[in-house]
């Protein structure tokens, strides 16, 4: 059992690592995971800056800045050691920016980041204690509060509004082909434009072992099978809707994942199915975020029922 000492009002607080035994000590720390995650997001950041220029930069800087300031302010209020340097706030802010369109009004971006950090993370006890992915909490709040302000999509290198792939699909119009989606000419929120870059970043995280491969594999598989069963083109639905952002960075967030391998696979499949159902039948542009939020809520249940069997115990 790992015991870490922290300055908590004169009493040593126990910090328990939540994974099934056996444990092995490795040179992985929160800092390193966070730095790697930020690094893996950089291709996406550069790609989006190339596509949307200042607009994208504005959203990212505001989201990250507001996230850092909120983290510092809340830590101060709670009288806890300032942990803003571990960089988790930067990741949350950056990922929140990826879930917003480049046209998002500045004050909405800031509000989203404040809610993500304050209500999505700090009220539950800060880094590593949040049951829901903070960026998604912020994004869902914004999505429900300001649908008309957020659901305005623009094409790359221009300020002309375009219809998102989902809207084209609902309207039954000509759909953008794979090439257009990969080249970043079709999409809705920023993460949907950056398929290749996010896939690259996600693969790095999986190879380094920071994201369990079972979550994205379960998610992609469930979406593909679900859409194929309904007579849809599975590959097209994997390329759109920001599934890749959700699979690696939102659903793949190790803090909000089940602790057992089987649990993670079921979690990924659950997200994929919920996403498919909400997107296909509800035609909701925020389907991805609702699906992950829903499955985040089920994580304690998955932990309870999909425990790894104890070696040597009677079956």
């Amino acid at each position: 059992m790992a015991v870490a000492k922290s300055k908590g009002e004169g009493i040593y607080q126990l910090t328990l690592i939540s994974s099934p035994p056996p444990h092995i000590h490795a040179a992985i720390s929160v800092d390193r995971i966070v730095h790697m995650t930020i690094a893996s997001l950089l291709p996406g950041v550069i790609w989006l800056l190339y596509l949307f220029g200042w607009q994208a930069l504005r959203v990212m800087v505001l989201a990250v800045g507001a996230a850092i300031l909120t983290e510092m302010a809340v830590m101060k209020l709670r009288g806890k050691e300032n942990t803003v340097y571990d960089g988790t706030a930067v990741v949350t802010g950056l990922i929140l920016a990826f879930t917003l369109p480049p046209t998002a009004p500045s004050w909405i971006v800031v509000l989203g980041a404040v809610i993500a950090i304050a209500l999505g993370k700090q009220v539950f006890g800060g880094t590593g204690c949040n049951p829901f992915n903070p960026a998604i909490v912020g994004r869902v709040f914004l999505g429900v509060a300001f649908p008309t302000q957020l659901n305005v999509w623009i094409g790359p290198h221009s300020s002309e509004t375009i219809a998102s792939p989902l809207e084209l699909w609902v309207a039954g119009e000509a759909l953008p082909d794979y090439g257009e989606i990969l080249a970043g000419t079709a999409g809705s929120f920023m993460g949907e434009f950056a398929f290749v870059a996010l896939l690259l970043g996600g693969l790095i995280l999986i190879l380094r072992g920071y994201v369990d491969w079972r979550v994205p594999v379960g998610l992609f598989g469930a979406v593909a099978v679900f859409m194929a069963c309904l007579g849809q083109d599975p590959l097209w639905h994997l390329l759109t809707g920001g599934v890749v952002l959700g699979a690696f960075y939102l659903a793949g967030d190790p803090v909000t994942n089940p602790i057992t391998p089987w649990g993670r696979l079921v979690f990924g499949i659950g997200v994929g199915l919920c996403f498919g159902i909400i997107r296909y039948y509800g035609q909701d542009p925020d389907a991805l975020f609702f699906a992950i939020l829903l499955m985040n809520g089920l994580v304690p249940l998955l932990n309870r029922f999909l425990r790894s069997r104890r070696r040597g115990a009677a079956a």
Binding site: L119, V123, F141, V144, A145, F146, P147, Q149
Partner: peptide, 22 residues
């Protein structure tokens, strides 16, 4: 002023209630 639609919906009640109790 842009209306925060979420405040008129059930989640808004929970957010408000929670923050006041907090």
């Amino acid at each position: 002023f842009v209306n925060w639609q979420i405040m008129q919906l059930p989640p808004g009640a929970f957010f408000t209630m929670g923050l006041i109790v907090f």
